[in-house]
Computed example of a mutant assay.
Amino acid sequence: MKRLIKYIILFVFVCVGNVTWAEEGERESSLFPDSSYVLRGPKADFLEKYRKDAAFDYTTNIEDSPSIWDWIKRWILERLFRIKVSEGSMQTMDIILKIVLGLFALGIVYLLVRNRDKFLFRRRETDFFPEDSVEYTGEQEADSFVRLLAKAEQENDYVLAIRVSYSALLQMLDKKEVIRWDVSKTNQHYIYEIKNEMWSRHFEEISRIFDCVCYGEFPVDETAYRNIKRYFTEFRKEVEG
């Protein structure tokens, strides 16, 4: 029985050894191919050929497409002036366009400032009309200030009554061409603009009262208002003759 076990163990070792030797033989045969196998490689100028081909050059910076500003300058040069586009002409057109746009912007600002009372600060209510404005805008007639003054006096709003009275004087002086009303002018401008020295002096006194009451918050009661109103009435009589 022991002899039989020995034979069996020996048989197993022989089988395992044959399998191992077969695997090593196959591994060696794969490492050492037969003589029919040829190792191929790229030609010497293979890489150089593709380096010189622009289609494979990924390091070149691609030019950005022209901006809208450059397109406008180019269009003006080529279509309007029939001038050949060059670096110098583009720079010159750039300066010209910036100057034109700057002047255009200044013109818009000037119009807005000059006409701000007409469309910038006008009330949106549907029942508002230009003649309802307390400040003189160059449009109102004398009747509108008479109506506003009567309403202010009826409500005992004496500060508003003085504002209306001063605007009415500006309207009267403007219509009689004693002054030339402009939204950008100050009261001091009108004082210097009045040629008659006595009228100019009296208007200066009225302007001082107007500034004290409307901007200096000078208190005005009924008695003070009646005294102030006399200055406006007498000045109007002087000018209207």
Rank of each mutant, 00 (worst) to 15 (best):
Y7F: 13
I9C: 11
I9A: 13
I9F: 09
F13L: 15
F13N: 06
V14F: 15
V19Y: 15
V19N: 08
W21K: 07
G25R: 15
E26C: 06
R27T: 13
S36Q: 07
R40P: 00
A44Q: 13
K49M: 14
P66D: 02
S67H: 05
I68V: 14
I68D: 08
I76C: 02
I83S: 04
K84F: 05
S86R: 04
E87M: 12
M90P: 07
L97Y: 05
V100N: 00
G102A: 10
L106M: 10
L106V: 13
G107R: 02
R116C: 13
R122D: 10
R124I: 13
E125T: 12
E131I: 07
D132Q: 11
Y136E: 03
T137N: 06
T137W: 00
T137Y: 00
G138V: 05
E139H: 02
E139L: 14
Q140N: 00
Q140D: 03
F145S: 04
V146I: 11
R147K: 12
A150M: 05
K151D: 15
A152V: 09
A152H: 07
V164S: 00
V164P: 01
L169P: 02
L169F: 03
Q171A: 08
M172A: 02
L173M: 06
K176T: 00
E177W: 03
W181M: 01
K185M: 11
N187E: 04
N187V: 06
E193C: 03
K195W: 05
S207H: 10
F210R: 15
C212N: 14
Y225L: 04
Y231A: 10
Y231D: 02
T233W: 01
E238M: 15
G241P: 02
G241S: 10
